[in-house]
Lab assay of single mutants.
Amino acid sequence: AEKTGIVNVSSSLNAREGASTSSKVIGSLSGNTKVTIVGEEGAFYKIEYKGSHGYVAKEYIKDIKDE
């Protein structure tokens, strides 16, 4: 099942092309942005936001229960 997560940073969080800190940054998400978690790979979540996919470090995403 898809989960919703909240970007848990004070400034912004980089979204990357792949599940690695050396992957190209494809965008950034500001704190408290809601994202859909579609998968996980190592220390990263694969997320969907406004129709695009990217990878973000798990430690900066807070899971919330689907309402």
Rank of each mutant, 00 (worst) to 15 (best):
S12D: 07
I37D: 01
N8C: 15
G51K: 04
I61K: 01
E59I: 13
G51R: 04
G39W: 03
E59R: 13
S52R: 13
G42N: 06
N32F: 12
V9W: 06
G27Y: 14
E59N: 08
K34P: 06
K34R: 13
A57H: 08
K46M: 10
S10E: 11
K65R: 12
V25L: 06
D63N: 09
V7H: 02
S52D: 06
K62F: 09
K3F: 09
N14C: 15
N32W: 13
G18C: 14
E40N: 04
S20W: 07
I47S: 00
E17C: 13
V38Y: 06
I47F: 03
K24D: 05
K46G: 01
S12E: 09
S10C: 15
T21C: 15
A57S: 09
G42T: 01
G27P: 02
V25M: 05
V35Q: 00
S20D: 11
K65Q: 12
T21F: 15
Y55T: 00
S30G: 09
V38I: 13
N8I: 12
A15S: 04
S23A: 11
N32K: 08
I26E: 03
A57Y: 11
S30Y: 10
T33M: 09
G18R: 13
Y45L: 04
I64R: 04
V35H: 00
I37H: 00
V7M: 05
I61Q: 00
E41I: 08
G54F: 12
T4Y: 14
Y45S: 01
I37F: 02
V35Y: 04
S52Y: 11
Y55D: 00
V56K: 00
G31H: 14
A1C: 15
S12Y: 14
K34F: 10
I6C: 13
D66M: 13
F44Q: 01
G42W: 02
L13A: 11
A57D: 09
T21S: 12
I26A: 01
L29V: 08
G39F: 03
N32Y: 11
G31W: 11
S30R: 14
A43T: 08
F44A: 00
F44V: 02
K24R: 13
E41R: 05
T33Y: 06
G18M: 11
G31A: 14
V56E: 00
R16A: 02
G39E: 04
Y45T: 02
G54L: 09
K46L: 10
H53P: 04
K50R: 09
Y45C: 05
G39K: 02
K65W: 10
T4I: 11
I37L: 03
E59K: 13
A43S: 10
T33G: 04
L29H: 01
E40S: 06
G27Q: 04
S23Y: 07
S20R: 05
S52I: 14
I64G: 05
E59H: 08
S28H: 10
D66A: 11
K24V: 07
S11Q: 10
I47H: 01
T33P: 02
N8F: 10
I26L: 10
A19M: 05
V9N: 07
E59Y: 08
D66C: 14
V9L: 07
V9D: 05
H53F: 15
E59P: 03
